[in-house]
């Protein structure tokens, strides 16, 4: 079911995650790691300067994407995109970088997923016998970051739900998701249950249930997304 365009859906998801971080950063400094795809777009919408981006290939204080004249092949983020430095940024080896992640120093990671289930188990690394073979830092990030935020479209391109009862694809981490943000809803994992906190302005709860395979509860404080 397509209520809004794919492009708009992605922007909305990124914006919702950025709103969440901006709010959290009013209380404390945040160190976050953004995965590739929609998660990278989150950086475009963050306004709070109390947020520092980490790239697992060995940088803290990642700046904006490099413009044509600024590109340096040895200054990239984990998605191989040329980026810029920020004042006070630092570089370190991959072991220190994952030490930050595994050691619980990274407040949150934002990653995409193929499937997330009712218990917060995530499948995002491989489709068996496919054209891609790689795990990257996904398993380290979901088990190490203090909070795991899934940023994904609500359904697959074929319209299948991505929020499922039980992951069918090989999993990345058991029960590691804390928040799931789609263009249709914002869900928090609370006491091992999915709880809907925000809903898209275009749809009703009934429709959301139809496009969501996973069971979810509705927060008593349910809000309509604050989106353009």
């Amino acid at each position: 079911m397509q209520v809004i365009s794919e492009e708009k859906a992605k922007q909305r998801i990124a914006k919702l995650v950025a709103q969440y971080f901006d709010k959290c950063a009013e209380e404390k400094t945040l160190f976050i790691n953004l995965g590739v795809g929609i998660p990278t777009m989150v950086a475009d919408y963050i306004t709070n300067t109390n947020i520092f981006l980490q790239a697992e290939n060995g940088m803290l204080g990642v700046g904006k994407a490099a413009s044509e004249g600024q590109k340096d092949r040895n200054l990239i983020n984990a998605g191989r995109v040329p980026i810029t430095e920020t004042s006070g940024c630092s570089f370190f080896d991959s072991s220190t970088s994952f030490g930050m992640i595994r050691g619980g120093h990274i407040d949150a990671t934002v990653i995409g997923a193929f499937e997330v289930d009712e218990e917060g188990t995530i499948a995002n690394w491989i489709i068996p016998n496919g054209k891609q073979l790689g795990v990257g830092g996904a398993m380290d990030l979901v088990s190490g970051a203090r909070q795991v935020i899934i940023a994904m479209q609500h359904t697959t391109k074929k319209g299948q739900p991505k929020l499922v009862k039980k992951c069918k694809l090989p999993i990345t981490g058991v029960g590691e998701a804390d928040i799931v943000v789609t263009e249709m809803g914002v869900f928090f994992l609370e006491n091992n249950k999915l709880v809907l906190k925000q809903i898209a302005p275009e749809i009703s709860l009934d429709i959301l249930s139809c496009i969501t395979e996973a069971d979810f509860e509705v927060s008593s404080d349910l809000k309509v997304m604050d989106v353009d």
């Binding site: 697992e56 080896d93 991959s94 072991s95 970088s97 994952f98 030490g99 992640i101 595994r102 795990v135 990257g136 830092g137 996904a138 398993m139 380290d140 088990s143 190490g144 090989p170 999993i171 990345t172 981490g173 058991v174």
Partner: peptide, 28 residues
């Protein structure tokens, strides 16, 4: 996994034959 990979190389270099990590628990 990338973090395990980095740490496993570091461990070899500093004389540690093996280590325990939460990464990949419950996965293939």
């Amino acid at each position: 996994p990338q973090g395990t990979f980095a740490e496993a190389i570091r461990a070899a270099g500093v004389g540690i034959p093996a280590f325990f990590t939460p990464t990949s628990a419950g996965t293939d």
